[in-house]
Design a protein around this nucleic acid. Structure first.
Lengths: 256, 256
DNA sequence: GGTATATGTTGCCAAAAATACAACACTGTT
DNA sequence: AACAGTGTTGTATTTTTGGCAACATATACC
């Protein structure tokens, strides 16, 4: 496949500048990319003409420019969580063979807003648009554990495994935070186990959760941690797609 | 000044894609930029390789890519002004009930870098990342009046109230300096009035502006001076937070 | 269903643009 | 004052790019 090399060089410069705290000089950039100073200089001028980089006040070091903000923000406004999440739900189905779901928090419950069915699965009715309780579903527990919103409602039982004791639930939630994914072990529906992980946006705010659910016969307790890690990684990739930067979360939680 | 033309073409493609709702095809892009289909195709492939654009699922139309989000977000992280300003924007919303904005000067325009919406407000699309002209917005007039950077561009009209006469604008700017805040009286958008005031840093250098904007029905001409004083005081408090000392400014202006 | 129109991608060679090298201007340092 | 470092500009050479065409694929129209 043909690549326009000078365009590629310009884009490489932008990627380089991303990782430098205080900008970079022409010579420094040229060395990193193994190109001549003069080429770097001209590439930088072009990038600057279009606002993709800008020079520091002393007209020496180059920084990322405001045009990137403009374009990036534009992107955010037009793409909804659901559109973004869909390919990742498919990825989950491909990797686990189970049904995948996307939910957001609404009305102190988990609102299912998308679903991708596994090909081999029995035909189940779509759960999109349904609300589920937070304390006994994997998607709901993610919101409790990572959303910072405590559970005040009564812990209504749905199966004999449903956790109804607040302190037991608290223990489960901190465990959830530690391992990065939540588990529902037949706590809402008999014979169904679920795993879910958090999705963050560009402000490091929890915006939803994705997860899988399947029959206890296939989603066994032996395999559930493997599933959990797959879900966790996929959710992380989706978050990155939404502009989430793990470092942001660190500073945010540090402030709280 | 030398420009790397193929890089420029790639950047132009990104700018084109910003203004298209559902992406654009190779041929369409080629026509807009008066280049050959084949060139457009190769440029797009290069942009796609680096994540600056991506193809729609049907492998046809091109959209802006996630890398722009990553880079744009990175840029935001750099700007500590934004972090400092946030509580003051909330304060403005609390005191006035209107939307509050923070902007900096970039490319001879006002770059919106943060926004806090009033609770009662209709849900408006975020303006973060957008560039606005200086001569007909309150935030922009602040930069002209207090930034010491004269206006040389043409005064393009946006509404019938937009000031297009240089000497009228000059009079407005000195009035702005005297009272300490700038007003936009439906000069950019019909039905919207804005008020803004300058933010200085520890060196007494203008670093940005904060302000509010709201429907002319609520931000009336009778109340606008009250709003102006609130904005001015809040901006002053933020400046103090950034280490600004009013005495510094006096010595600075005396030296010039 | 079959033809016609439009779109996206790939080879090839001439033509044009980017590069390397050097020279130059400028800054801060020893 | 000489020096080392940086950033920019001129010019010839060489590489890359871009136009043209063919090809493959998708979409519209009888």
């Amino acid at each position: 496949m043909a690549e326009i090399q000078s365009l590629a060089k310009g884009l490489k410069i932008l990627n380089l500048l991303e990782h430098s705290r205080n900008g970079m000089g022409t010579t420094e950039i040229a060395k990193q990319l193994s190109i001549d100073k003069s080429s770097a200089s001209r590439l930088l001028h072009t990038l600057a003409n279009y606002g993709f980089v800008e020079q520091d006040e002393h007209s020496t070091r180059y920084l990322l420019g405001p045009q990137l903000l403009t374009l990036g923000q534009h992107l955010l406004n037009r793409i909804t969580l659901r559109d973004h999440a869909r390919p990742y739900l498919h990825e989950l189905v491909d990797k686990t063979g189970e049904c995948a779901h996307l939910a957001i928090q609404a009305q102190r419950q988990a609102l299912y807003i998308d679903q991708v069915e596994s090909t081999a699965a029995l035909r189940v009715e779509s759960e999109i648009g349904t609300l589920s309780p937070l304390h006994c579903t994997a998607l709901g527990k993610v919101m409790l554990a990572f959303g910072g919103c405590p559970m005040h409602d009564e812990l209504r039982p749905f199966t004999h495994r449903t956790v109804t004791d607040p302190s037991t639930l608290d223990a489960q939630l901190s465990q959830t935070v530690n391992r990065g994914y939540a588990i529902d072990d037949e706590e809402y529906n008999y014979g169904v186990r679920c795993v879910a992980a958090p999705v963050y946006d560009h402000r490091a705010v929890l915006v939803g959760a994705i997860g899988i659910s399947g029959p206890a016969g296939r989603v066994t307790l032996e395999r559930i941690d493997d599933f959990g890690n797959v879900v966790k990684e996929t959710a992380y990739a989706l978050s990155a797609r939404l502009g989430f930067d793990a470092r942001l979360q660190l500073t945010r939680t540090a402030n709280e």
